[in-house]
Nucleic acid binder design. Structure first.
Lengths: 206, 206
DNA sequence: GCGCGGGTCATCCGAAAGGTTGATGTGCGA
DNA sequence: TCGCACATCAACCTTTCGGATGACCCGCGC
């Protein structure tokens, strides 16, 4: 199975290449350290599966790269391999077209299994990720909407309501309304407390 | 050269093992996924060098594990391999007795070189790390005082100025004065932005 | 002694944030 | 088709925050 590795850490790339190659089952046809290279190599090398880290140091991030790869002709499957299991990351990755989402804390066997599953076209989620998604559908009143997460992330980045409103092309009143809903759902009454609560519950990442 | 790998991510561990073993120069004699195991294996396996990640998921963190390993009889060298190059992390690791500090974004050759250098007893710092150290000795005025950090941590926990003032038995005016100094030092103009800046620079933890 | 940084406090004011209520439109599933 | 969640906006009001001052005390180093 032809695999393309995308990670901004050379050590991790080399490690993954060695790990996958040793099985004999996987053939690492290329490596990319940034999003642009990833898209280019995905188009030219035509791998079966792209193993994608979400945290790429500079330039295009993993989600954008995934979206661009899925826009190719007969695109490969994309399996996200990352450190964090925040709602925001998972949602964006799946929305961008990722066929799998697993954590670096997973055992290697799970990685192999996820690559096989993804290649067959099935969605491959590691247990912690799957349980997060389950909790999300079971308790939708505690979950923030994508818009609310989007706004809360900008708040967490230190932006004012006005800045957020301009960045999202909406009115300041709307930002305040969304934030009021966020405060209500998280049981807090200030932006800073909301950020902490959201980080604690892994709804966003700082 | 006998190496012990300490990292909480099985995928990274397996990758590093494959990478190091492939050189023929390094012999991975063991792996540990947490600090306690790391100390135990360092004592029983007697590796030449311990390759230590600072971010261990649960239990003892990498700095503490390093300190405990250095307290052993004829301890091995400890080389820190981590993602972040924050002042606080570097200082704590070196203070704990680490002989090397390199980033996961370094090329594999640098990793090999650092292991050799550390084994020979020399300090091995990757270039970005070394430059951070240099900047720190040149610009010590960027550091927050203990009191300022104490207040900023409460702010990061979502407390209001009034709550902080009552928790620290000082007036609200004093809290505001301290915060104004913090904003000035961090180059921001709101509490949320200050929290983000401080977390980014590892001045506080969330 | 004097300067300097740190910690403490106060006042005044404008800007920002938060609470409340109510309204409109859209999409989706029962 | 009827709700319901979501996203959008507005007006009003209170509280909080942030900026600009100025002041006092303490410990430390030159």
């Amino acid at each position: 199975m032809k695999v393309l590795i995308v990670d901004d850490h050379p050590v991790v790339r080399a490690g993954l290449r060695a790990l996958l190659s040793a099985t004999g089952e996987f053939d690492v046809v290329g490596e990319a350290e940034d999003g642009a290279t990833a898209v280019r190599l995905a188009a030219s090398l035509r791998p079966c599966v792209v193993l994608m880290d979400l945290q790429l140091g500079s330039g295009v991030d993993g989600v954008t790269a995934t979206r661009q790869i899925m826009a190719l002709d007969s695109p490969p499957k994309v399996v996200v391999l990352t450190t964090y299991d925040s709602d925001a990351d998972i949602l964006r990755a799946v929305e961008a077209g990722a066929t799998g989402y697993l954590l670096k804390e997973s055992p290697p066997e799970e990685l192999f299994a996820a690559l096989r599953t993804a290649w067959s076209g099935e969605m491959a989620l590691s247990p912690p990720v799957a349980s997060r998604m389950m909790r999300r559908v079971r308790a939708p009143q505690l979950a923030l909407s994508q818009r609310e997460i989007e706004i809360l992330e900008l708040i967490a980045a230190g932006r004012s309501n006005r800045e957020v409103s301009r960045m999202l092309f909406i009115s300041e009143a709307t930002v305040k309304t969304h934030l009021a809903h966020v405060y209500d759902k998280l049981g807090v009454d200030s932006r800073t407390a909301a950020v902490k609560a959201a980080v604690d519950r892994r709804l966003i990442r700082l």
